[in-house]
Nucleic acid binder design. Sequence first.
RNA 1: GGGGGAUUAGCUCAGUUGGUUAGAGCGCAUGCAUGACACGCAUGAGGUCACUGGUUCAACUCCAGUAUCUCCCACCA
Length: 921
Amino acid sequence: MGTLDKAYDAHAVEDRWYKRWEDSGAFRGEVREEAEPYCIMIPPPNVTGMLHMGHILNNTLQDIFIRRARLEGKSALWFPGMDHAGIATQTRVERRLREEGLHRRDLGREKFVDEVWKWREEHGGIILQQLRKIGASCDWSRTSFTLDKDYSRAVLTAFVELYKRGYLYRGLRMSNWCPVSQTALSNEEVVMKPQQGLLYKMRYELVEKPGEHLLISTTRPETLMGDVAVAVHPEDERYRDLVGKHVWRPFPRARIPIIADEAVEIEFGTGALKVTPAHDAIDFEIGQRHGLPIIDVFHPDGTLNESAGAPFVGMDRLEARKVAAKKLEELGNLVETEPYENKVGFSERADVPVEPRLTMQWWLRYPKVEEARRAVEKGHIRFHPQRWAKTYLHWLETMERDKIDWCISRQLWWGHRIPVWYRKGIPREELDFDNPDHVHVSVDGPPDPENWEQEEDVLDTWASSWLWPFANFGWPGSDPVKKRELAYFYPTQTLVTGFDIIFLWVARMVMAGLELTGETREVLPDAEISRRIPFRDVYITGLIRDAKGQKMSKSLGNSPDPLDLIKRFGADGLRFGIVNIAPSGQDILFSEERIEVGRNFCNKLWNAARFRKMSGPSEDTSTEGTILERIDPALLSAYDHWILDRLVEVHSEVERCFERFEIHAYPHALYEFFWSDYCDWYVEASKTRMKDPATQETVLAVQDFVLRQVLRLLEPIIPFITEELWQSLGFSRSGETFLQDAGVLRAVSCRDLLENRIGTIDPSSRAEVENLKDLTTRIRALKAQYNVASRRDLSFWILPDGKAGEAVLERHRETLLNLAQIETLRMVSERPEGMPAGVTALGTVFLDLAQAIDVAAERERLEKEIGKLEKGIRAGEAKLNNPKFVDKAPEAVVDGAREQLEMTRSRFEEIQNLLESLPEA
RNA sequence: GGGGGAUUAGCUCAGUUGGUUAGAGCGCAUGCAUGACACGCAUGAGGUCACUGGUUCAACUCCAGUAUCUCCCACCA
């Protein structure tokens, strides 16, 4: 065994191991019929994406799940890939063209799409390289892209199938229009943002009663040129007489009717609503009900068109708002304006207000909504934390109740072009969709393409990624290898994602799986649901915010560069740190100091291993068996039993964390065990026995055993350093290349293995060690209180608590002296006077000070302690004197209370004795 | 308007199905080169568990209400 450097140097380790893992195919996931499958589908990052903290958290968690599964012997597959990200990518390339003074129209569709592919080759998918830096153990040989040939075929097949089954239709409806991207968006891609604006109160003159006016409130005067009516509530007394009459729209000046419609809120504003069917969803509905015309005053890019009239034509909508208000004022139509905050829908991608706009789009009626609900209600799919199931269910209910459909067409070029062909020569509005001579829908297109025109629109990116869990296994193809893989890995096991895409992605994947995998069926029984769902567990991560709780964003500059963090803290440090601070399902407040914990832990691990190496060689550490053989059970102390007991316990804690998806508790459990129990107490306590040749080998073997198990438990979260130490400590069995091949022991197996060699792990060792720790701490505290913490030549006296205490003290004397850093511990049978003392379960210790003690300080300290004990005694007595407690509480609890009281009383008495023995001040 | 979540030490959070005297990390104070680790070691200070009721032998934990903060959904222009 060589030696290790003083501090862990992540860089020297990480790239080297990653390359070896990847080169040797360690992450390859394949069908192994004898093994249980465990598959995770990566939430495909955008091809334009760059690694941010959210990715770190999300992908570290996935890596933890997949690595743990691998250690458990499952056939683990983490399927990586990317999303073509229609709008984001197209926008990116358009921006580049604009720098050259070009527009995509200048190139034409085909050339433009070529440009995007070129961009993708050069700049796309950086994130997949970055993921390697954090150690993501994806099966890169499978890296998928939603526009790959096979994947595209799956997307088109899904479209055609759903069309055949009647879920798809084309319709002229109100949709969300992004004037920057110039495409429709689904409701889920629109985020509502509160906006500070103005509420304009305007007056429109009554046609039938010149000189009289109707007051109307609006936040959008720029659309009034598209007004075709004014609506009031039918039961609004104020306006009852006016219904059926008309007002003058100020510009372009026109008579428009006053109508009654229940959609109008009597309480809001003046109770009169200007109706602009082309630019507002409610207005559109009102318009439909009353047979009103539709006047669109906007161009697709959000500037005003000819219908708006002078001077508005060509003006941007926000500019037009100001101009319209000014014009209203000049005409005397503006009564007042007041500051007003309302919520405006913004395009998630382009971050500009969307326009409700009447356009022809493709719509999807969601399939298998009822089954998607049942899948979660009946527990076929489990959310972690569970409460997110409510969010999911709530959304589905809204979809069902309000019959909300999904707008899946996009007016873009980058994406899957909708596989629908229209007969040339027939105007689109005259097409009969039931006539195959008019409309052709198929994956490969019509046999006589010259007679058809393909639909120009492409599909929403989510309408491709919702097939992710099965399209990646070759669905619907007939390749036998892929079919076998689909059968083996699907349903996948765990999905790790953020709550923000529960609607956008999670729910839709469930519906797609239910509808499209397996035979076409109208209604699915539970057993079938269980077979068709895309995943069984959904782990929802929190959002990473900065230390002040603000969202991370480029504009705020509060978003750290993960690669920089990796440089400074190591990939393992960052992984450990981020998971360590991630509470379950809550937002995470990030600060660098909190990541330091991870780096420090790695360094601690490193140094514990380093210390082990410096302490002496060992024959063979490559199996548990050879390590355990070196232990002489007769030489094991309470400390050994205790640490091995705790080791078994931490195995079951880790198991519980994974079973319950409480992943944040997983690093906590190991941190506590390794740092506090193993390093601070076990290793420190063993130092004495490591010096003794008789016990040395046994102690080192225990250390080897603990380290070996701990590395296996830690591998999922800190794979690099554990691999490095695994190899360096000689733990690798011949024939096994990596730590991951060694598997992990279940707690029960770990216990069996140990007990086969050393006999039953002594259950009383726990209490014994706790008592010794307490005594050690008391001694150290006394030293600190008397400012002699650094002296090692001090003598302590101890009045043992009975024979048992005496025996324990005798057994551990040397260890105790070393742990407490004192010269001698002398047993006495009488309480010495005039010495500062501490009371423990093993006896009362006294600090033998040459100088006089500070009686006042000592008295104060003891009185403070006695105060606490008094409280405990009172509480205990009250409890035990209550017959109801003694009757009703479980025996163990009552016994526990009795024991507790007894202990508190004896300690109380002992302290009272000490107080009495204090000399007068 | 509907729904979710939160409220525990200065900060960020744990706290199992109710059961001893409520924990951790960071920060803070004090001391320390002790056969690995200053990315360290030791000791310590610091808490009316938001509030009010209820259930119970027993409530940080369960129930109801109040307050404050937060997120999601929804067509008040």
